[in-house]
Amino acid sequence: MRVARLTVAVLLAASLEQVQALPPPRNPALEAQALEAQAAVLRAAAQAGDAAVQWQLGRLLRWGQPKEALAWLRKAAAQGHEEALLYLCDLLLSGSAGEKDPQEALGWLRQAAQRGSANAQVALGDALSQGAPGDGSEREGAAWYRRAAEQGNAFAQQKWGLALRLGTGVGKDEPQAFEWLLKSAEAGDVLAQLEVADMLQKGEGTAMDEVVAVRWLQRAADNSVGPELAAYPLGRCFELGLGVNRDVNQAAQHYRRGARAGDGRSQRQLARLLLAGQPTSLDRMQAYAWLSLAMQSVWAFGFDKDELVELAVRLTPAEKAQAESLASQWRLGAAIGVPPGEQAVRR
């Protein structure tokens, strides 16, 4: 079975949101001395068997002395320290501490999952769900999602609900899927909020209700991690009048938020709005910039590549060069949230 690398975000889940690996030292020679001094203070308690200190020591030594770091993390994990175990598994799966052993990581996750750790159950479900199709891994992964979901873990409820919606490792059951996704959405999981909105719009597993769907999309947009994710579906609602009064300017605002974050769908729709009506030269240049970025995005599969070619014909060589310059600037601007030279869609 292929075990894909789990990210720290997945492994540590909700209970570990504030726990992050120490950054790589910027001045190794000087910071190595400080690192050793701090480690010396912790080693006595760690050697006496304090799992919490072993965990902290493992994190502290991660960048400077990874072999010793793994040793302390294993000791803490063996005592059932959940954060140490999950962090250890991420290091073993990624090989970023010099050792890569997916099977050892899977073994640690199984131990913690069987002891009832919801976070480990979710992480184990992720690892198993990424196994080779048809080897039974998806079914076992879904079972672990369910066990964690039944403990009230919102992230697991989202995973289990999605498995039920898609029929991944379990029989497809849209009404049950909606119930679990709704639990997760109410607990604040932004991906579940988006799924609930989508099911309400389509009438899958529940009665169709476009108005309530927009409310869930707005909640996702108000979520600290959700504005960019909700931008495109909210934009579509305002552009098409789904559950709200049609408002192209509102649609453009949502698309622009998604476009700045690098969402290819939003970039493409924003370009189309810029080209609607009687576009100016600047409209066409901005549309070309956004559309060229969209064609380079992960969403580009299925996009009509001729759109960009047809638009290029409408630009002079100077305008095309300027549009390409804008796209280059906006590629950086998407990372900082302030694309320069942008104007609003005029209506």
Rank of each mutant, 00 (worst) to 15 (best):
L194R: 03
A37R: 15
V338I: 05
V19W: 12
R256E: 03
L16D: 13
S297M: 05
S137K: 03
V196C: 07
A105Y: 06
Q130Y: 09
Q18K: 12
G167W: 06
H81K: 04
G226D: 02
A39N: 07
K159M: 12
A9N: 11
N223Y: 05
Q47L: 13
Q157T: 09
K100F: 05
V41Q: 14
L332Y: 10
G116F: 12
L12M: 11
L242W: 10
G235D: 01
A318S: 14
A127Y: 09
Q38A: 12
A312V: 10
R246Q: 15
Q253T: 04
A40R: 15
Q158V: 02
Y255I: 04
A48T: 12
A213E: 02
V8I: 04
Q121R: 08
Q111G: 12
V313R: 14
G169N: 06
E104F: 10
Q38V: 01
R146P: 09
Q111L: 11
A45G: 04
Q130F: 03
G98C: 10
A32E: 14
D101I: 04
R284A: 02
N249C: 09
A149R: 03
V170C: 04
A187N: 05
M295R: 07
E307A: 10
G49N: 10
F238A: 00
D283I: 06
T316H: 05
A127P: 09
W160R: 00
L194H: 00
F155M: 06
A163H: 03
L12A: 08
R284D: 03
Q56H: 13
P102A: 10
Q278D: 11
P317Y: 03
E31T: 09
G264C: 03
Q103F: 12
L124R: 02
E319L: 09
A344M: 10
A231M: 00
Q343T: 13
L42V: 03
A327E: 06
R236V: 04
R246E: 15
A221R: 01
V309P: 03
L124K: 08
A287M: 08
S129F: 05
R219Y: 05
Q218E: 14
D90K: 00
R215I: 00
E204Q: 15
L200A: 05
G262E: 01
G95T: 12
E307Q: 15
E186K: 11
S281D: 13
D126E: 14
G235E: 05
A78I: 06
A123P: 00
L229A: 08
G167E: 05
R59I: 06
S325C: 07
L308M: 11
S129T: 09
E239Q: 13
A185N: 10
L42E: 02
R268V: 02
L194M: 04
D189C: 04
W330Q: 00
G341K: 04
E150A: 12
R26A: 14
L93A: 11
L182C: 08
W55H: 15
P175F: 11
L162N: 04
S224R: 14
K100P: 00
Y145R: 07
R146Y: 12
L234I: 06
Q343A: 13
L6N: 08
A78W: 08
A323L: 07
R26N: 09
R2W: 07
R147Q: 15
P28C: 01
Y255V: 00
A148C: 10
